[in-house]
Amino acid sequence: MLSLDKFPPGCKGVVDSLDLSDEAFRRVAAFGLIPGSHFNLTRCAPFGGPLVLEVGSTRFLLRRSLASLIQVRVAE
């Protein structure tokens, strides 16, 4: 298990847990990121910029600071 900001780009993973406030959780959940959901980390912006994630057919960006609060594992 590792946090999403340490996840290798180009790999697929599964969300384990989200250590977020109620408000942040709703925002993240609206993009389909909830425990058990599969994702694909497509790219990371340079200089500590945001990550681009794919959940289902939805692609979105989120900041590393937020990603560090999301625990994930590599999908088998």
Binding site: E23, L61, S65
Partner: peptide, 8 residues
């Protein structure tokens, strides 16, 4: 809000 998410 730090929880900045944006659809691409």
């Amino acid at each position: 809000n730090e929880a900045f998410l944006l659809e691409v």
